[in-house]
Amino acid sequence: MSSASTDVGPFTGRPMSELLPLMSNIAGERVDGIFYQYFGFNEPIEPHFQHTIRNLEIRDDDIITLGFPRSGNHFAFEVVNMVQKQSTEYVKSHMIDNVLELRKVDTYESYRQEPSPRNLTINFQVRKIPQQAVEKRTKIVYLLRNPKDALTSFYKHWIKLQADDMGFRGTWEEFLDLSVSGQFTYGSWFDHVLCMERYMADHPDTPVHVHLFEEMVSEPLPTVKKLCKFLGTSEELAPKIAEVTDFGYMKKNSSKDGEIGDRFLQQGAAFMRKGTKLDWKNNFTVAQNETFNKIFEEKMAGSKLADLVRPYL
């Protein structure tokens, strides 16, 4: 358990020892200090990370799309796959069924059968990617979204999970304390981003493209074209890709979200929630916003990735 368990939560003012029991109903385990949910696969997670994921065979034309949860991951999943495969068709399976850490059934065989080029979709920190991906300098698309919106979406998603051993039943303030301290599932946004920044510094020869959620919402076509350039694909389909991956268009024209919602979420909830920026203003109080800004500046001082999201805080 992290030493953060003895600290006082900055949002509730309560000892973390009082807040940690709020996680007790969520089925999962900690790996290297970070909590991961079983998410319906009630099998040990540590062997999946330490052996299956670490030793996954990587092809030369594979790419990795990686981002902290609720950073526009479902949104980017379709965009990246279309650019990579030069298609304007949605992937038949849902993003959730393609997340590497959740793909525990016949992992090696299922990936072996996938045709190239493959997009390895990941939510965990970059330090745990397959060893061959590090050695082969596999291209990484890093999904970045301002943390206030990411955490707002994170909370609203986790309280809507239908299973008693999956959903979070605490308050918004309690969630903020657990999340910023790194005790909630997937750890803290700050650590996730700083880990990526360290990886980029330590592996300067690895191509990394930062895919900013806010830019995709405001300027979809230029953002898709940047992705085409990074992946070395034609820009010919970029206008159509930008059109069919508009958030509202996807919610209306793709049935996958409703199907996956029926599997995991309470009635009426959706994995693709709003797809907007600055929704955090509807959730943070003035005092919470001031506290969060202080924490952000303390933790992210000198971070270039932090500079990209600061205009949206």
Rank of each mutant, 00 (worst) to 15 (best):
Y108Q: 05
E109S: 05
S110H: 12
S110T: 13
S110P: 00
Y111L: 12
Y111I: 14
Q113R: 15
Q113C: 06
E114S: 04
P115E: 13
S116H: 09
P117L: 04
P117C: 03
N119R: 05
N119G: 02
N119A: 09
L120E: 09
L120F: 10
I122L: 13
I122W: 12
N123T: 13
F124A: 15
Q125V: 11
R127W: 03
R127H: 06
K128R: 15
I129Y: 04
I129L: 09
P130A: 06
P130G: 12
Q131P: 02
Q131W: 08
Q131R: 15
Q132C: 07
Q132I: 02
A133R: 10
A133Y: 00
V134H: 02
E135G: 04
E135A: 13
R137I: 03
R137K: 15
R137A: 13
R137P: 02
I140F: 02
L144F: 04
R145S: 01
R145N: 02
N146S: 08
D149R: 13
D149W: 10
D149V: 11
D149E: 06
D149K: 13
A150H: 09
L151E: 00
L151I: 15
L151P: 00
T152C: 14
T152P: 07
S153R: 09
F154C: 02
F154V: 04
F154Q: 10
Y155M: 03
H157P: 13
I159C: 09
K160W: 09
L161E: 11
L161C: 05
A163H: 08
A163K: 12
D164L: 05
D165T: 04
D165N: 15
F168Q: 01
F168C: 06
F168T: 01
R169P: 01
R169T: 09
G170E: 05
G170R: 09
E173S: 12
E173T: 09
F175S: 00
D177V: 10
L178G: 13
L178Q: 09
S179C: 06
V180K: 14
Q183T: 03
F184W: 04
F184Q: 01
T185S: 15
T185Y: 06
Y186Q: 04
Y186E: 06
G187H: 08
G187D: 07
S188F: 04
S188D: 04
S188M: 05
F190N: 08
D191K: 14
D191L: 01
H192A: 04
C195A: 10
C195E: 13
M196C: 14
E197M: 06
M200Y: 03
M200C: 06
M200D: 00
M200R: 12
A201T: 04
D202W: 05
D202T: 12
H203I: 04
H203V: 01
P204M: 12
D205Y: 01
D205H: 06
D205C: 00
T206C: 11
P207F: 03
P207I: 06
V208L: 06
